[in-house]
Amino acid sequence: MRRIAILAGAAVLAAGCSTGGSGGGSGEAKTGERTVVLVTHDSFDADAAVLEKFRADTGIKIDVRKSGDAGALTNQLVLTKGAPLGDAAFGVDTTFASRALDEGVFAEYRSPEADKGPQRYSVDDKNRLSAVDVGDVCVNVDPAALTAKNLPVPASFEDLADAKYKDLLVVEDPATSSPGLAFVLGTVAHYGNQGWVNYWQRLKANGVKVVSGWEEAYTQEFSGSSGKGPRPIVVSYASSPSAEIGDDGKPRTQALLDTCFRQVEYAGVLNGAKNTDDARKVVDFLLSEPFQKQVPEKMYVYPAREGVALPDAWQKAAPLPQSPATLAAGDIQANRERWITQWRTAVRG
């Protein structure tokens, strides 16, 4: 019997530290408070104080539900459009906006805040999506490692195919990585429908290394990150150098601003939302100055709103690229799979 007593005791102890025993935390809504479920991607993050202020001002609690990356988020929204997962969504980006719009995931809503900058990135004449932030994918370099090899810092797509930079570039596979796909789209925009495949053949001949995801490319292969890998040139984000600032206050890495592809992230009210009025207020909030001000530090992206100052580290190390490449969302939607297949044939074949 002693054995059974021990087991029962263990079960009681275990139940005490289970999820069921932890009710009444900050997640519980106060009586009379309204909740808006915001469906978003894994990278979503916001300053708790800013969210709390919004809650105090409006009586709306934002319940954040994360659903994978931008692609996974979009496809889940499409799949559940008959019975939506929430009231508003944030994180559908340039690459997937067309699919979400074609499938009628979002309801029409033009935020009064949209005129203050977000409208510049509009993808839809019915105003179903509002731009929240801009995150450019750019080639990053480790200048110290290049100097050690007696090489100047490259500047353009063309430089990367130059024999001087043989075996120095690492990129992500566009089939499995969002920055990988953005970089391929950048080459499509730069070289056009005819030339981009040829460019990748030249990159391949120049020893480009392809890995499956950003984590491996940046933290393991790239020499400028903590992983101190072998390659000094990597596809990452315009914002990445802001996180690589040394004790002397100087950035250790640098983004090549002529190799950038612009990705815009959008928010909107979901069709069939239970709480449309409040969902609209949440979209307004995402475009408002207090939220926009903290997107760089929290999500490593640039505010879509005009006149929002970047943090100091960013002004020094990660300015917003001025003339990034872009492609229309509809073009991307129509060609994405074909381009990935062509890329595979050129680089893997």
């Binding site: 984590e215 940046y218 903590s226 490593y300």
Partner: peptide, 10 residues
């Protein structure tokens, strides 16, 4: 591990 920055990695 999906974020840049040495401290995040450590």
């Amino acid at each position: 591990v999906a974020r840049p920055g040495e401290l995040n990695n450590q």
